[in-house]
């Protein structure tokens, strides 16, 4: 299924260069060129906001539930 599809594509582009059935050595070819002005990394911002939300949530849990929520450990 998928395997066949992939190697067929490779055959058309880079198949003769590879001994193994695998991806082409360089997949960095591009469709269009984006300059610094044309590129607005809003996807990056979205990912970082998601990460930040997870970070805050987990920290609040660790601090208020795990750390403050557990009683003192008295040794001896």
């Amino acid at each position: 299924m998928n395997e066949g599809m992939v190697s067929a594509d490779d055959g058309a582009t880079h198949g003769d260069l590879e001994r193994s059935v695998s991806a082409p050595p360089d997949q960095a070819d591009v469709d269009r060129t984006l300059s610094h002005e044309e590129f607005d990394p809003k996807g990056t911002l979205a990912l970082i906001l998601v990460y930040f939300a997870i970070l805050v949530g987990m920290w609040v849990f660790m601090y208020f539930v795990e750390f403050l929520g557990n009683g003192l450990t008295v040794v001896g």
Partner: peptide, 20 residues
Amino acid sequence: FTVVASVEHGARQRGGTGLF
């Protein structure tokens, strides 16, 4: 930020679209 933005730049040059 810098590394993810650089990768996003690559994705958009490769024809990627959308927020994610």
